[in-house]
Design a binder for these strands. Structure first.
Length: 169
DNA sequence: GCCAACGTTGGC
DNA sequence: GCCAACGTTGGC
């Protein structure tokens, strides 16, 4: 399902670059990757129920010296069962999940752009709009977080780039 | 259904 | 490497 600018959703996806980085996304086939391995129920619910094709994704690198929003992606496939949960050889194997009744879901995302400069937590904290982002809130470990349209636009504004999702419309 | 113990996350 | 915050597990 496509969506238009007004009902498009925005998200922040967190990843440790040692596990999966935006460079790996950009180097993937079709610059597209499965966002697999999410094993948290709240994040699962968002993957399954809320995230739509065409939504915007802020790609965030976590658990490094300077955690930061490093780039932009878009959702190219809506929630579907995470097959790594069914694979006994996968690190993400979960014996409670099954094909008939999948426990875990994933989406596909496609690389759009690197930010010209990563937006660090300090950058975010010092911005009137971005300082409200969930990712700055203490103890927030959710790997999939909602982002407001204002926050998405602020990231583009601060970065000095056009919205790659608006396509000139 | 409570809650202590445990494992994980992730900024610092 | 530290440790606070969080989610999950499992005994009771």
């Amino acid at each position: 399902m496509k969506n238009n600018d007004t009902d498009r959703g925005y998200w922040l996806f967190k990843s440790e670059p040692s596990a999966f980085s935006i460079e790996e996304l950009a180097a993937s086939d079709n610059q597209t990757a499965e966002w697999d391995g999410v094993r948290n129920y709240q994040a699962r619910n968002r993957l399954r129920d809320s995230i739509r094709s065409g939504d915007g994704v802020l790609f965030y690198h976590s658990n490094i010296k300077n955690p930061a929003i490093v780039g932009l992606a878009s959702v190219t496939r809506e929630g579907y069962p995470d097959h790594t949960a069914l694979d006994p050889l996968s690190d993400h194997y979960d014996p409670r999940s099954s094909e008939e009744s999948p426990t875990w879901y994933m989406v596909d995302i496609q690389y759009l752009a690197h930010l010209p400069r990563p937006l660090t937590r300090e950058d975010l904290r010092s911005h009137p709009v971005l300082s409200e982002m969930d990712v700055l809130k203490k103890g927030n470990r959710l790997s999939i977080q909602p982002v407001t349209r204002k926050q998405w636009e602020a990231v583009l504004d601060v970065s000095g780039i056009a919205d790659p999702l608006s396509g000139g419309k």
